[in-house]
Amino acid sequence: MALLEVKNLHAEIDGKKILNGFDLTVEEGKVHAIMGPNGSGKSTLSYILAGKSDYEITEGSVTFQGQDLLSLPPDERAAQGLFLAFQYPMEIPGVATMTFLRTAMNSIRKKRGEEELSTPDFMRLVREKAAELKIDPEMLKRAVNVGFSGGEKKRNEILQMALLAPKLCVLDETDSGLDIDALKVVADGVNRLRSPKRSFVVITHYQRLLNHIVPDVVHVMAKGKIMKTGGPELARELEAKGYTAFEQAA
């Protein structure tokens, strides 16, 4: 059974069609890359998977671990193991990063019927994961993402991902805004999380990220659907030819 199965998904917002028969099957332990031009619907897809309510699903289905994902509220999806690393992480003034991380971890543990983490255990875990991602512990004392640089925000997303240990990680342009060193740190962070039980959907514009996080499957998306699917070589082909050829295929 596939971990995630998206079938013939059609979605619109304010009457504007964004997804037009999108299909995607992700097996356990696999890394899928989705590449596609601006406005092709990549973030929309990721938001729909995470449960943002702005969209109207007019056709199709999404199953996650055999369950109808679309009928679950977003916090329930997170508890079941779905994680979205946002393209534009939110700034939350007045809520300390530590409070946010702790509330998230404990909410998910509670929903899974696990005990809350003790403060020392939580602190140890955060410190360890932050160090791996080269995040300055001082930053965690600040409000969530407030005053963080673009790259720091992205690293903070990966920190959350590492702490919540999801089954399916959707990374929406996590590489954009990262310098070369940070890209390596983030990619290493993602690679550390790779396991036969965990899958990834990596949305990106650049081959560069895929040199670090080597995908099993590469998809080209345009106009709200998958245009072509292949192996890592497809990403290199895209880098060379651009999207135009694929868009015309539509």
């Binding site: 309510s53 509220p73 946002f86 909410s107 409000a143």
Partner: peptide
């Protein structure tokens, strides 16, 4: 939505946001 996407239930997310306000 950012809170919800991290597994935090709506009531608790609202409480954190109201508190920060």
């Amino acid at each position: 939505f950012y809170f919800l996407a991290r597994g935090i239930p709506r009531k608790e997310a609202e409480a954190l946001l109201i508190h920060s306000f």
